[in-house]
């Protein structure tokens, strides 16, 4: 991999010094799960995000915060090539996943590695709970039919839903509560065995108890996955993440350890946002 992990934004006046803590850790963990190099996304002529340079490390939870419209979703969706679906979107710059430039790969293969959980739970409405879990495997034809039972059980246990649904696996997924649906979506996502999971405000449509369950999952997932989570909930970011990126007006303002971001941010703008002065 190219040694391209300096964090400076060269195009504007926001100067980012290299956080010594980051440097230390990044040496311990030299392989970045995701690395973006001057990543910009334009919608028609307007920039959604501009020149984002970010290094997301393996088996860490990275949260992305910032006011509405600052480009959090746009950034997240560029990592699994979702912008392919938006005709007006143009993506510039480079994205490396495990050190490999994703433009060398088929988008379908990238998405198998980079799963996504959405803001609103979106199980497939025509399918049962069981079929939702194996949907990805079935449609990709990547596992034998005889393995399905095992896959379903394993992933539902892993997503903390098994005990609630084990007696009604064949009932419609839509019969679950919102929080259960979201955990089902997580089970569906991890069933295809991704390395990275992108979550775009995964708990914002849920009640506090369901949200807490999801947070707990995210916490437990750390050993197995690299997680990038967009959230509007500052406490949530502080609770679940190791690193926090603060976006503002399409730019990356600060990328620091979460503890530092919420106690002693380097940028004044971050501090103002975190303390609720704007946003």
């Amino acid at each position: 991999m190219k040694d391209n992990n300096s964090m400076d934004n060269d195009n504007d006046n926001i100067e980012l010094e290299i956080d010594p803590e980051i440097q230390e850790e990044s040496e311990l963990n030299s392989k970045a799960a995701v690395l973006t190099n001057d990543l910009s996304v334009y919608f028609n002529k307007r920039a959604g995000i501009e020149n984002i340079n970010l290094k997301i490390r393996k088996n860490r939870v990275t949260s992305i915060i910032g006011p509405s419209g600052c480009g959090k979703s746009t950034f997240l969706r560029s990592l699994n090539l979702m912008h392919d679906m938006t005709p007006s979107a143009r993506v510039f710059g480079e994205i490396f996943i495990n050190g490999e430039n994703i433009s060398d790969y088929n988008s379908v293969d990238i998405r198998k590695k980079v799963g996504m959980v959405f803001q609103k739970p979106n199980p497939f409405p025509t399918m049962s709970i069981y079929d939702n879990v194996i949907a990805g495997l079935k449609l990709n034809g990547s596992k034998k039919r005889s393995d399905y039972d095992e896959v379903v059980e394993k992933n539902l246990i892993h997503s903390g839903l098994w005990n609630e649904v084990k007696d009604r696996l064949k009932t419609p997924a839509m019969s679950l509560s919102g929080g259960q649906q979201q955990r089902l979506c997580i089970a569906r996502t991890i069933a295809v065995d991704p390395e990275i999971i992108l979550m775009d405000e995964p708990t914002s449509a849920l009640d506090p108890i369901s949200a807490a369950k999801i947070e707990e999952l995210i916490f437990n997932f750390k050993n197995d996955y690299t997680i990038v989570i967009v959230t509007h909930n500052m406490q949530q970011a502080a609770r679940v993440s190791d690193m926090t990126a603060f976006f503002y007006l399409g730019k990356l303002v600060e990328f620091s350890k979460t503890r530092r971001m919420f106690t002693n941010p380097r940028e004044k703008l971050s501090e103002e946002y975190i303390t609720g002065k704007f946003g």
Binding site: M85, A135, R188
Partner: peptide
């Protein structure tokens, strides 16, 4: 969102 959910699974 259903199309996206499916695409995000690598379908």
């Amino acid at each position: 969102s259903l199309r996206e959910a499916s695409l995000a699974l690598g379908v």
